[in-house]
């Protein structure tokens, strides 16, 4: 992995032949919009590229004697996605683990293969942010992605590939400056959740706290649809003798998400659904994959129409667990 400084001029030169293949997250655009050309496609998060809200998995028709099936087409042109660390982490540590582990999702894999990630350091964590609580950080990086810190006149870059050949050695001074900046941004951020949290949380599945925690949630899908890690989907057949199988986003907040054909619903009220959302992100997923299925971007907190705040649910359960351990 190399490090270096890319001047503004060279940055724009590097972008020149990529203009029509550039994606930028909404939140990164707010901070770094001026570093990207007007052609850049602004998306809410990586889900919009990798897991579109609607996708034809295959088309079919009845050809008189037999069914004909054609698989859906997936765009494989190389694309670049620039986002904040939390949003990149959602892809690398969460959705990749879901769709690239067996059984592999072919469509996701094809899109993912052609997607290069750029991580833009987060220099202004917002009041709704909590990445450090869930194992991330404003300077979180990953070897597969470019890591960038835009400065006044240049960009500090870490990683591999073509962009690095445009860079110049920054020397010790730049290294110091970046380290100082990182320290400054990270100071005062909450420390990570205790390692026993995911395992112990499940022991509190039946606790009465969930009634109170879930009470004011309206069970809309704003949090799950806007979350960069929520990946649950529905499959439906659209058409009879001719049609397609549709994959569309679904949300554990909706009653129909778990409605059985018998009309029994194992998650009949908001309480079970809210608990599921918390448990999946903070217990089931980490127990299976080793990290939380929440990157602490805070979008759900910011966008919730009734200020349902997942941090409060977590804090309350951490407190309870620690009280019982003491």
């Amino acid at each position: 992995m190399s490090k270096g400084l890319v001047t503004k001029e060279k940055w724009w030169k590097w972008l020149e032949d990529k203009k029509d293949r550039l994606f930028l997250s909404e939140r990164a655009q707010k901070r770094y919009g001026s570093w990207f050309p007007p052609e850049v496609k602004v998306v809410k998060n990586g889900k919009e590229i990798l897991l579109p809200s609607g996708e034809e998995m295959y088309r079919y028709f009845w050809a008189g004697e037999e069914w004909k099936v054609e698989e859906g087409e997936v765009n494989t042109a190389p694309l670049f996605f620039f986002s904040l660390p939390c949003e990149a982490r959602a892809i690398i540590e969460i959705t990749d683990k879901v769709f690239l582990h067996e059984p592999i999702d072919k469509n996701y894999r094809q899109r993912r293969k052609s997607l290069s990630l750029g991580i833009l350091a987060c220099l202004q964590p917002e009041p709704t942010c909590f990445c450090s609580l869930v194992g991330g950080g404003p300077f979180w990086k990953n070897e597969e992605a470019l890591f960038l810190v835009p400065r006044k006149e240049d960009i500090y870059v870490e990683g591999e590939g073509e962009l690095l050949s445009y860079s110049e050695e920054g020397g010790e001074k730049v290294k110091q400056e970046i380290q100082t900046l990182q320290k400054e941004v990270e100071s005062g951020l909450p420390s990570p959740l205790p390692s026993y949290f995911s395992q112990e949380l499940y022991q509190h599945f039946e606790d009465e706290e969930w009634d109170d925690i879930s009470w004011h949630c309206m069970n809309c899908g704003a949090c799950t649809f806007l979350c960069p890690t929520c990946y649950c989907f529905d499959l439906s057949i659209e058409g009879r003798l001719k049609g397609f199988q549709l994959r569309s986003w679904d949300s554990c907040m909706f009653p129909k998400f778990t409605l059985h054909a018998s009309f029994h619903n194992p998650r009949p009220t908001g309480k079970e659904r809210v608990r599921q959302r918390v448990m999946h992100k903070f217990s089931y997923f980490p127990e299976r994959e080793g990290n939380f299925a929440c990157v602490g971007c805070g979008v759900c907190v910011e966008k919730c129409p009734v200020n349902w705040d997942i941090r409060e649910a977590i804090e309350r359960m951490v407190e309870k667990i620690d009280r019982l351990r003491a």
Binding site: C220, G221, A222, F225, L226, S251, F254, P305, V306
Partner: peptide, 22 residues
Amino acid sequence: CIRCYACRNACPLCYCKECFAE
């Protein structure tokens, strides 16, 4: 619109047991 149904769920008079949208 992302069809999160926040509008419907915030509405005191949208109380159908099964919404036509679902």
